[in-house]
Every structure is written in C-alpha cells, then in structure tokens.
Design a protein around this nucleic acid. Structure first.
Length: 376
RNA sequence: GGGGAGAUACCAAAGUGGCCAACUGGGGCAGACUGUAAAUCUGCUGGCUCAUGCCUUCGUAGGUUCGAAUCCUGCUCUCCCCA
C-alpha cells in the first residue's frame, strides 16, 4: 500500500492525499461506508460505486467469523469475490465488539473470550487468530486487535487497557510477519491508538504505534461516550505524533461536523454506521441540516428528498413518499434514506478535499459547520 | 317471532365494588442512535397545571353503596343462533 500527500494546508492540519491499494486508489479525506456482515445494509454494490461514489468499504472480523464463517469466505476466494465489491476493503478486528459486547465477553492477557450474540456459543479471539481470520477474509487494510476503551473509563482502567492494546499490537505485528496474503493482493495492518481521554496516555500510545513501520495508523476509543470537545482534544494530541507521510484513520466517527473538525486536525479516513443506521431510523443528513423524516411536518412535503443531493434517489422520490415508506416500515424507505445519507457523506469528504486543494477549507468548514448542525 | 352475548379512551382489547384516568397491543406524536448484538430502542398519548393536585370519562337515564367501568332497573344500539 502506498500513500502520498498531495496538498497540505498551512492554516490547518488538513491535507489531501491519495492512497493506493491492491484494489484501486482512494482519494483522502475519505469516508468508508460500514458493511459489517459483508454488505452495506440495503445498498447494492453498483449504487455504492456509481451513485454514492464510495471508494472503500468496511467489513467486520467478528461478524464474518461467526457468520458465514471464514471457511465459506475462503471458499469464495475472499470477501471481495464473495460480496462482489472489487474496490478496497478494510476490516475491523473485533476490537469494537470487545467494547460493545461488554456483558458477554471476558478479557485476558491472552485475548478476548466472546459469547456469540447469535447463539451464545463461546469463542476466543487472540491477536494471532484475529490476524489469521483477516488474512482469510482478505481485506486490503486490516486492523490490529485492540480493546476499545470506554469514554468514561477512569485513568487506571484506561492505562491498563492501553497496555493490553499495546501488547496485543506487538503480537499482531509478529503474526503479520509470520503469515502471508492469500489472494494475490497485499494487506496492510493499521495499529490503533487508545488511551481513553487522557493526554499523557494518548501521547504515549501515539509514540508507541509510530515506532512500528505501518502503512497507516488509526485512532480508536473516541466517540464512545466522552464529550465532543474531549474527542477533538485527543485528536489534536495524537495526530502530530503520527507519521505525516502515512494515512490517519479516526475509527467510528462520526457526524458530518465531527468529520470536518477531524479533517481540520489532520485525519484522512473515517467510518461510521450513522448514515446507514440513522438513515434506517428516519434521520437524513443534508447540506442545510438534519431532517427527521418521520416528523409530521414532512407528511405533505412533495419536494425532492434533497434538492441539492447528488444521488438519484434524492430526485427520484419526494419527502412525503419517503416519510410514508419509513413510517410504514417498507424496506425501500431504509434503502433510500441510507443511499441518500451515504451519498451525502461521500459528497462531504469529496468537497472537503476540493476545498483543501484550493486552500479554502477553513472558510468552507466554518460555513458548513453552521448549516450542518441545524435541525430542519 | 324465540333464545343468547355484548356496548371501555383514536382502533382492538383487559378489568367485574376501593390498589382505575383505567393492563396490553396497534395507531399517533416526539426523542435517541458515532470501528452495527439495531429495518432497533425510549418517552408521551382525556382536560388544566412546572408539579403535588384538581376536573370530566368505561352506550344512555336513573338507583343501591361511605365508595361504581364493575351491583340493580328502564331505554338505545350491536352481534350470534334458531324459526
């Protein structure tokens, strides 16, 4: 994998770059739609690529391992062949499930013991097994196994948790050395910075990951319950320590405003379930602000879903119809809303990149931030 | 014509003397959602009030009772069975 910074602003840490992978080139900043179980919920690959303009999507190690299982994915010839997406893929390691499945998992130095959320069966994830599984899934970018520290973790917990993540990273890197890609394209492992909401821990964590030769670096354990300004502060602490010539990935973030703020602080890559999950639940992100399409006021609004939207669904359907679909629990409603939101997110990062290239990012960000936070 | 069952809030449906402004669904209205245990979850849904509270409600008109959606009587209406 190769990354080059095309343009670096002087009044901001924001930069525009190009990341080349075995499945194509990704312009940064970029937003990566989340496809946990191998599919971006409700969205066809054709729309993802041609209408939404996605360049790279996510999959999840934990979910794919449980179902359909790595043997099936291997049998298909890897996830790209299995799901029909021939662009770059990134897989999360299961580290987030260490956090979100808190009640049905147990952590030890060795790894994490999970109870399947599907059938309750017990499974052990170790840094080594997580690398092995991700080799079999075959994503272009794979993530280190980490513990995603909760946003409200006290200092002692965050420190201990960080130490575990660091020790697991060393084992992941070793396992990468011992193993090889299975499908003829290269795989890059990104280490993850943890450290909770504590500046000294984040600093130490950033230095630790930077000491490894990696193709990119991730910031994890944010937007997990801590206040937004704390999240921004942590990004400001971490980014300057990470190698300038490598992509930086802020995991699981976020709202459109979060993304602009993080780009401003030097982040290149994002992923979040918000456009799809919140879309399914009736929340639309637009250039003018947030729409809760379930609200009564849209019942007789026959204007397009998004007058300025870039997706065909924005013009094919009107707000009143989309509201009707979502309220009636019609699956097309979830599809339209997801497609609109993803197209909006991809437009946002594309436009951010354009504004960086013409040195107008700061002004544009300021104006957009005001509009994006509005409730319509 | 004869016999039987029933009428509860927007709809359906519990409740058969005080714990009932009334279970529960649905519908409606709002909210939440950040590396997806999520096409999920939460709140409100008679009126007034910030609230304690007060007022008006269980077909309708009376009655019994300290107290009635619940018991009694008349009336109105609905459904089922037999002719």
């Amino acid at each position: 994998m190769d990354f080059s910074v095309e343009h670096q602003l002087v009044d901001s840490e924001a930069r525009a770059g190009l990341m080349s992978t075995g499945h194509g080139v990704v312009p940064t900043p970029i937003f990566m739609p989340v496809g946990t179980a191998g599919s971006v919920k409700g969205i066809h690959v054709k729309d993802l690529k041609e209408d939404i303009g996605a360049h790279i999507i996510l999959g999840n190690t934990y979910h794919l391992y449980l179902r359909p299982g790595t043997a099936i994915i291997e049998g298909a010839g890897g996830l790209h062949r299995f799901n029909g997406w021939n662009g770059p893929i990134l897989t999360d390691s299961g580290g987030y499930q260490v956090f979100s499945l808190g009640d049905i998992r147990k952590l030890t130095e060795e790894g994490a013991r999970f109870q399947s959320h599907i059938d309750g069966s017990y499974h052990m994830f170790t840094p080594e097994s997580v690398v092995d599984i991700q080799r079999k899934i075959g994503a272009d970018i794979i993530m280190a196994f980490d513990e995603c520290t909760p946003g409200d973790a006290p200092y002692d917990y965050a420190k201990k948790s960080l130490a575990l993540t660091q020790s697991w990273l060393e084992r992941c890197m070793e396992q990468m050395q011992k193993t090889h890609p299975l499908y003829g394209h290269s795989q890059s492992l990104f280490p993850i910075v943890q450290g909770g909401v504590y500046e000294d821990l984040r600093t130490q964590a950033a230095k630790h990951v930077a000491s490894f030769q990696a193709d990119g670096y991730a910031i994890g354990g944010l937007s997990v319950g801590e206040p937004e300004n704390v999240m921004y502060a942590m990004i400001e602490v971490v980014c300057p320590i990470l190698p300038k010539e490598k992509p930086r990935y802020l995991m699981g973030v976020g709202t459109p405003v979060n993304i602009l703020e993080a780009i401003d602080r030097g982040v290149d890559m994002f992923d979040c379930v918000m456009p799809t999950r919140n879309g399914r639940n009736g929340m639309l992100f637009t250039r003018e602000g947030i729409i809760n399409i379930k609200n009564k006021k849209w019942a007789d609004d026959f204007s397009p879903v998004d007058q300025e939207g870039t997706s065909y669904v924005d013009h094919q359907y009107c707000k009143a119809f989309l509201r009707h679909l979502i309220i009636s629990n019609e699956m097309l409603g979830a599809q339209i809303a997801s497609q609109h939101n993803l197209a909006f997110y991809l437009w946002l990062v594309r436009e951010a990149r354009n504004q960086i290239l013409c040195n107008n990012f700061k002004n544009w960000k300021e104006e957009m931030t005001k509009r994006l936070a509005c409730r319509l």
